[in-house]
Amino acid sequence: MMADTDKALQELDDLFAVARSEPPALPDRLNAAILADAVRAQAGFQAAAPAQAPRQPLWRELIEALGGWPALGGLAAASAAGLWIGVAPPSFVPDPMALAGYEDSSTAVPYDSYDMAVVLSEDLQ
């Protein structure tokens, strides 16, 4: 009885050995499907990667849209110069008020016209 058991176990070990020596090959179709899955999953990692980059604050995005810090420096200098020219225009720059047809308040035409109208009306009375 013991010998029968030993023999059966030995035969079983032999069967295992044969099975191990002939492992089933991965079918070509399955191999291709696995690799296609791998490519799809990998594409997902690469698509997701930029989303994981830290987002920049809005002010930094604006500065970069304008051309970075050097461009921003130039913009600030030009803005300051423009403001100064507006407040205290140099002599060679025409007076914008004069160009627009206005003069100093002391020679305002409407005021003179009003005086003349009053004088004329008094003369008529």
């Binding site: 089933p24 991965l26 079918p27 990998q42 690469q46």
Partner: peptide, 20 residues
Amino acid sequence: NGDSRAAAELTARLGSRVFG
């Protein structure tokens, strides 16, 4: 990290064992 050959090697090593 995006190496396309690594998937083929892993499949050859492990896919057939899992299938068996």
